[in-house]
Amino acid sequence: MLPSSPQVEKARVKDLNFYYGSVHILKNISLTIGEKQVTAVIGPSGCGKTTYLRCFNRMHDLYPGNRYEGEVILHPDYVNILSPTVDPIEIRMRISMVFQKPNPFPKSIFENVAYGLRVRGWTDRAVLDEKVEQALRRAVLWEEVKDRLTHPALTLSGGQQQRLCIARALATEPEILLFDEPTSALDPTATARIEELILDLKTQVTIIIVTHNMQQAARVSDFTAFLYLGELVEFNKTDKMFTAPSNRLTEDYITGRFG
């Protein structure tokens, strides 16, 4: 029998509830994120998948009126990401994020990738050069931009911009990489390259990806969580989820009966 939970844990979500004002958005979510695996979060629009993802780097702290309940325990040091005593900036330095629309800074390609390092106080040019190149290589963008690192990032194509954002997130060597529908603004070719890249990266880093595209979840992920109206309906190995879902609602969703 296939294990329905990852064997090596990177994070464990325990009874996560999230409130926006008085609206209860996420309801009692518990699951385990596997180390160096891709966990996909799927579900129809408004099911709370992006809200869920943004709990992992405490993005909700940027806006007033939000409240977390429950725990997200990050391994190996068992720190509770959601604890008010934990500095969200420290969490964001360990867990990076790639957004729905490519959002490079209107600066040079180099400065985009170097920014996370600069925030951490790196100033040595040689170190920055090396780490920027390494990140761009990992994001499979180096060959395309190595001769124009000083050019504005906004001159790149949409797909290249998104890979630049991935390089920017990778430069600081995060433990978990969060993807929030990273291909929803891209054409099919650029999408294919990003998916390839995600498969590449999962040997090095733990990945959580939110997607509204079920095929994408099936292609890139090891585990899939299906969220519906803020509740976790099913969490399972991806192959199992898409061939023999154990829940009727999951089956209806992945076969396209609703959503």
Binding site: N57, M59, L62, I89, E90, R92, M93, S96, M97, F99, K101, N103, P104, F105, Y115, G116, V119, R120, C165, R168, A169, T172
Partner: peptide, 17 residues
């Protein structure tokens, strides 16, 4: 745009940074 602020915060920048 707010997406720029979020990008900076997501990299661990403080508000002032």
């Amino acid at each position: 745009p707010n997406s720029i602020r979020e990008a900076a915060h997501a990299l661990g920048a403080t508000k002032w940074q």
